[in-house]
Simulated scan of single mutants.
Amino acid sequence: MVDILREVGMIERALDSMSNIEFKQIDLARGQYLYVVRIYENPGIISEQLSGLIKVDRTTIARAVKKLEQKGFIERRSDPTNKKIKHLYVTEKGKQIYPFIIRENSHSNDVALQGFSEQEAQQVHDYLVRIRHNIDHDWNFVKHGGKRQY
């Protein structure tokens, strides 16, 4: 069997490492750019939804949100009907860095897909979406206390 997850992991770690170095100039630490982008693209999102988008646990979300809030990139606002629910929004400072993050993402996509036709790039995308959907069930299962059978 072909071990594609090893390749996907190496790609992810390389891109994440480069981003973390480049994003230091805008005061973003390890992986924080991902939170800013998802909150920017989903204004008013709640932590549980963000957890599902990024595929990290609620504790990691809470820690990242707190740090980004302290740095002034995002803010939490109480829900008008249920004060326990906190909606997440990007601040003006967060909005200002979004274009830089997107330019980096676009550049990385262009580099990654060099030599691919549009059709091949679309196929790669479609395959990766299918792989993610295959993994989503296990992620949700384990996240909610389930034990996978190997």
Score class of each variant (00 low, 15 high):
residue 112 A to C: 08
residue 138 D to A: 14
residue 91 T to S: 10
residue 65 V to K: 01
residue 89 Y to W: 13
residue 25 Q to F: 05
residue 55 K to L: 07
residue 26 I to W: 04
residue 73 F to D: 01
residue 59 T to S: 12
residue 93 K to R: 07
residue 31 G to W: 00
residue 69 E to A: 04
residue 55 K to R: 15
residue 11 I to K: 12
residue 13 R to W: 08
residue 96 Q to G: 02
residue 41 E to V: 07
residue 69 E to F: 00
residue 35 Y to M: 05
residue 136 D to M: 15
residue 29 A to L: 12
residue 75 E to M: 07
residue 92 E to V: 07
residue 69 E to T: 04
residue 71 K to E: 03
residue 21 I to Y: 07
residue 129 V to A: 11
residue 84 K to R: 14
residue 140 N to T: 10
residue 54 I to E: 03
residue 26 I to N: 05
residue 15 L to G: 06
residue 97 I to Y: 02
residue 87 H to C: 11
residue 60 T to H: 06
residue 7 E to S: 10
residue 124 V to G: 02
residue 22 E to H: 15
residue 14 A to E: 02
residue 36 V to I: 09
residue 128 L to Q: 03
residue 23 F to V: 03
residue 135 I to K: 10
residue 105 N to M: 15
residue 15 L to I: 07
residue 57 D to A: 06
residue 148 R to N: 13
residue 31 G to K: 00
residue 98 Y to H: 04
residue 81 T to Y: 14
residue 136 D to W: 09
residue 24 K to P: 01
residue 39 I to C: 00
residue 86 K to A: 01
residue 83 K to F: 08
residue 43 P to E: 05
residue 41 E to F: 09
residue 113 L to S: 10
residue 6 R to M: 07
residue 91 T to H: 06
residue 31 G to A: 04
residue 36 V to W: 00
residue 35 Y to D: 02
residue 27 D to W: 11
residue 106 S to N: 10
residue 148 R to K: 07
residue 59 T to E: 13
residue 129 V to D: 02
residue 43 P to V: 04
residue 142 V to L: 09
residue 148 R to M: 14
residue 36 V to L: 05
residue 70 Q to D: 12
residue 102 I to V: 14
residue 94 G to C: 01
residue 86 K to D: 00
residue 38 R to D: 01
residue 8 V to Q: 05
residue 93 K to D: 02
residue 145 G to K: 09
residue 122 Q to K: 13
residue 138 D to N: 12
residue 50 L to Y: 02
residue 122 Q to S: 13
residue 25 Q to A: 13
residue 74 I to Q: 01
residue 116 F to E: 08
residue 140 N to V: 12
residue 145 G to T: 09
residue 33 Y to H: 09
residue 146 G to K: 02
residue 120 E to W: 02
residue 87 H to Q: 14
residue 2 V to E: 00
residue 25 Q to V: 15
residue 90 V to D: 01
residue 62 A to E: 08
residue 65 V to T: 05
residue 123 Q to L: 14
residue 56 V to I: 08
residue 111 V to L: 15
residue 136 D to K: 10
residue 76 R to K: 14
residue 55 K to N: 07
residue 70 Q to R: 15
residue 61 I to V: 12
residue 138 D to P: 03
residue 87 H to L: 13
residue 138 D to G: 11
residue 14 A to R: 11
residue 84 K to W: 05
residue 9 G to Y: 14
residue 124 V to F: 04
residue 19 S to Y: 06
